[in-house]
Amino acid sequence: MRAIQITEFGGPEVLTPTELPDPEPGPGEVLVDVTRAGINFADTHQAENSYLSPASLPLVPGMEIAGRTSDGRRVVALATSGGYAEKATATPDMCFDIPDGVSDEDALALVVQGATAWVLLRKSVRMDPGESVVVHAAGGGVGTLAVQLAKRFGAGRVIAVASSEEKRALALELGADAVVDSSAPDMTEALVEANGGQRVDAVLDMVGGRVTDQSVRALAPFGRLAFYGMASREAPSPVQLPNLMRFSTTVGGMWLPHVWMLPGNVMGRAMAELFTLVAEGHLRTVLGGSYPLSEAARAHEALRSRGTIGKLTLDPTA
């Protein structure tokens, strides 16, 4: 089968098209004929071995696949790796049947980014109706969905932070009440100004560095910041615990794999709600384009530049 393989860690240049044997499903696993593979920002960290879970070589990257099982089910699935290929394996608990009215690309936009946005709002910051919510990287896969879900869940004011006029215009189109340029020299001041002079209640942050530090300073009493990525690759300053008490603020992290440890099938509930919202036209996935499998390196370059909008996918048939 055609696949992308990594034999040394590094940047996009290490993503090499190759031919490999078809994967053999292990006990209880299913084999999926991949029609589309999702590209996630975490994949760029996996390629350079800077992700939360260490990788080993050789490696076929990719954690999101959509396609058909041997019994004809159309599924979207999460894998630990192996998605950038014509065939991949997954465990049944990581597979979700794609309903009618939801495309493979839609499903890939939902299985990590959509679920992340849902969990951030429902579980991490536990947004109450009427609260103000800041969405950093609002033009990305998580951000475009988080803006819509925050409004859907009753946010009083959604403030979208993005790096270009095009992305900020898209955020307004998706329902944001205000937008902020991500290059604002003082993010604290910019967020407070965008919230009508009031500090903000909740922040969804996957940028890191200066943006995180200054966003924490923009939190209102009992405000919460959920940190779920580090796109800037800049480490934020250590949180000073006395300051959390002094300002009654909360800073927490979120990594989607931990959702499977929660009781009550949280991931299943998230996917069911997201699928329904898309199928009924209440939630719009923003699709940033599909690249041929052989151009995975170019897709990673585009994603790392932070110039892309919405969800990127790979087409193993092209």
Results as ranks from 00 to 15, higher is better:
residue 43 D to T: 08
residue 53 S to N: 03
residue 76 V to H: 03
residue 241 L to G: 13
residue 227 F to R: 04
residue 216 V to D: 01
residue 57 L to V: 06
residue 115 A to N: 09
residue 207 V to A: 04
residue 262 L to S: 11
residue 27 P to I: 05
residue 113 Q to S: 15
residue 308 T to F: 09
residue 253 G to S: 11
residue 315 D to E: 11
residue 234 E to Y: 00
residue 24 E to L: 00
residue 8 E to M: 08
residue 266 V to R: 01
residue 110 L to W: 05
residue 219 L to T: 06
residue 165 E to F: 00
residue 133 V to P: 02
residue 213 D to A: 12
residue 261 M to N: 14
residue 99 P to S: 08
residue 276 T to G: 10
residue 201 D to C: 07
residue 198 Q to W: 09
residue 141 G to R: 02
residue 127 M to E: 11
residue 279 A to D: 12
residue 291 Y to H: 12
residue 241 L to E: 13
residue 55 A to S: 15
residue 196 G to S: 10
residue 230 M to T: 08
residue 23 P to D: 05
residue 297 A to S: 15
residue 208 G to W: 06
residue 161 V to N: 00
residue 148 Q to G: 10
residue 166 E to A: 13
residue 53 S to G: 00
residue 70 S to V: 13
residue 200 V to E: 09
residue 177 D to S: 10
residue 85 A to R: 01
residue 261 M to E: 15
residue 273 E to C: 10
residue 228 Y to C: 13
residue 20 L to G: 01
residue 253 G to Q: 10
residue 121 L to H: 02
residue 137 A to S: 14
residue 23 P to C: 04
residue 115 A to S: 09
residue 66 A to C: 07
residue 217 R to M: 12
residue 103 S to Y: 03
residue 96 F to W: 12
residue 298 R to H: 15
residue 28 G to T: 06
residue 145 L to G: 01
residue 239 V to D: 07
residue 26 G to V: 02
